[in-house]
Design a protein around this nucleic acid. Structure first.
Lengths: 128, 128
DNA sequence: GTGATAGTTCAACGCTCGTTGAACTATCAC
DNA sequence: GTGATAGTTCAACGAGCGTTGAACTATCAC
């Protein structure tokens, strides 16, 4: 997953996942599903949102892989949604690794007077 | 911070932070700052972005509290940016707690045939 | 087959926000 | 004071996307 030096593809993937989760109503849906499996109408009632809007958001979460679907065995009209535990764990790990404070390096600026002082042997390399 | 049952204010705060970080160029800026203190032009060169756009994104990161500013002691035109380590740690903890897989509960749906079966004593409570 | 129910899809609107270009501010060297 | 430099702010444009309302699909009971 994310190493000390994240690749561009890793960053883009993380940004895409963060964007999905950054929408307040989707985050609320995820929070509710963390509390247990629920159907569209239950989510809608809890969040005061219309069924089609719930469907819309759930679709985005499903496309991301974070939410899974199961139809009722007795009556297929009922659809239950749940969190994909393994992807959630992966996401938590990715985020934790990327935003790990111990990853902050001591490197000083290569530009400006302070930059020139600290990296005297890199002055020629400093473009700005 | 985030407890097992996140409050609405907690969710909104988390969503706001996620939204800041979800923008790909801002995430790239954060990644670069994780590798060490840098100035506007260094970030701009690395990401092929104009100074004003870098300023714009840095402002948003500063307003969130994640990025800190220091002017060069010799020449105040030079401004160095760095990551606020304590806020980063807080963010990582918040995210990790919210998206902790062990937080997923076993609750079954209160709606539909499966819901009625599992929670026979809650049937009257099921609205949908 | 008809009507009800649970949920999905479609399309349009309006809001948000990233980007671009211009202008501005502060600092420095001469 | 002038010109250069590092960075910031402002305003406008257009892309993206959440929401709304309507229509649709699938399933069920009778």
């Amino acid at each position: 997953m994310i190493t000390l030096h994240a690749t561009a593809a890793d960053l883009d993937r993380l940004a895409r996942h963060l964007k999905v989760l950054a929408e307040p109503n989707r985050l609320r849906i995820v929070d509710l599903l963390m509390q247990g499996v629920q159907c569209n109408c239950e989510l809608g009632d809890a969040l005061n949102m219309a069924p089609n809007l719930i469907s819309h958001h759930l679709r985005i979460l499903r496309e991301m892989g974070l939410v899974e679907v199961e139809r009722d065995a007795v009556d297929a009209r009922w659809i239950y949604y749940s969190i994909n535990r393994s992807l959630l764990a992966q996401l938590a790990q990715t985020f934790g690794a990327f935003f790990d404070p111990t990853r902050i390096q001591d490197r000083h600026p290569a530009c400006g007077p302070q930059g020139s002082l600290v990296y005297a042997d890199r002055t020629l390399e400093a473009v700005c």
